[in-house]
Design a protein around this nucleic acid. Structure first.
Length: 272
DNA sequence: AACGAAACCTGCGCGC
DNA sequence: TGCGCGCAGGTTTCGT
């Protein structure tokens, strides 16, 4: 499911519902969601911890507790629900009982999501966080240029690699590359300093707009907590195969770039 | 260093 | 109706 706008939406919704509540019990129904080495530690240490804040970086959610930080990555299908009664179905894998008599439930059809509990004091050192680059809002385009100017990888997969810049996923990267008129298979070392400026600026614009609309809801995916995004109405190319390009009216093409479905206007986004 | 492919999982829509 | 296939908003790992 989620890229940066959806993750922010989930975190903000959860903040409104469970901030300052204390965890009274934890049930784990599918161990692989939790970092293997963490399981016993995870179950025992979470009890009596209060959720003081919920932060995000890129696609990572961080529940800031008293002594720990609970990292949660939703990967493709992870969702949170807040229930009034203890509810479990076949895809509910972790349930936190809270002291306001509500239940925070992690639901994940494909079981790709991950959680990890880490000491609050050193949480910035957690590998989950250390390998995430700045979000576009903080990213210095000159730094991005210096990081990528000699790379011979294609720009789309490189932007999907969260270690350079975080938050873009398969939907928004297509939108950003369309907006900047860059073909997704362009090699990083063919792009100019100005291209990287445009990429950062377009990322900020696209993500901000999506955040303001509560993210994107397409296909079977419905955001957690009944939140349904509205950015799908703003998409220019992603999902628009065979439809007219909003700029030049040529047909938008769907192809594969390093294994990911990719939507391009071949007229607006020329190979170099 | 960088690529593809596979892995982790389940469900959906499609063509036959 | 049933089956097989391809596909899915992510990331890691493994082999070449």
């Amino acid at each position: 499911m989620p890229e940066l706008p959806e993750v922010r939406t989930v975190a903000n919704t959860l903040k409104n519902m469970i901030l300052n509540t204390k965890i009274t019990k934890v049930e784990v129904y599918h161990n692989n969601i939790i970092d293997k080495t963490d399981l016993d530690f995870f179950k025992s240490e979470l009890v009596n911890q209060t959720i003081n804040d919920i932060k995000t970086k890129g696609k990572m959610i961080m529940f800031i507790l008293d002594d720990y930080v609970l990292f949660s990555h939703l990967r493709m299908e992870g969702k949170y629900y807040v229930d009034d009664t203890y509810t479990k179905d076949k895809h509910s894998h972790v349930i936190f009982s809270l002291d306001n008599n509500k239940f925070l439930r992690y639901h994940d059809t494909r079981k790709f999501g991950k959680m990890s509990l880490y000491s609050k004091k050193y949480y910035l050192e957690h590998p989950y966080l250390k390998n995430i680059g700045d979000e576009p809002f903080q990213k210095d385009y000159q730094e991005l240029y210096l990081q990528l100017k000699d790379k011979k990888t294609m720009i789309k997969p490189t932007l999907l690699d969260q270690k350079f810049m975080s938050g873009l996923g398969n939907i928004y990267v297509d939108e950003v590359l369309f907006k900047t008129r860059i073909h997704p298979e362009t090699l990083c070392n063919q792009l100019t300093r100005k291209d990287y400026l445009k990429i950062v600026e377009a990322s900020i614009e696209v993500l901000n707009k999506a955040i303001s609309l509560g993210g994107t809801t397409i296909r079977s995916y419905t955001s957690s907590l009944g939140v349904s995004g509205k950015f799908q109405n703003e998409l220019q190319v992603h999902t628009k195969v065979n439809q007219a390009c909003p700029i030049c009216n040529n047909k938008i093409v769907k192809t594969q770039v390093k294994g990911r479905g990719t939507y391009i206007c071949l007229h607006c986004q020329k190979k170099r």
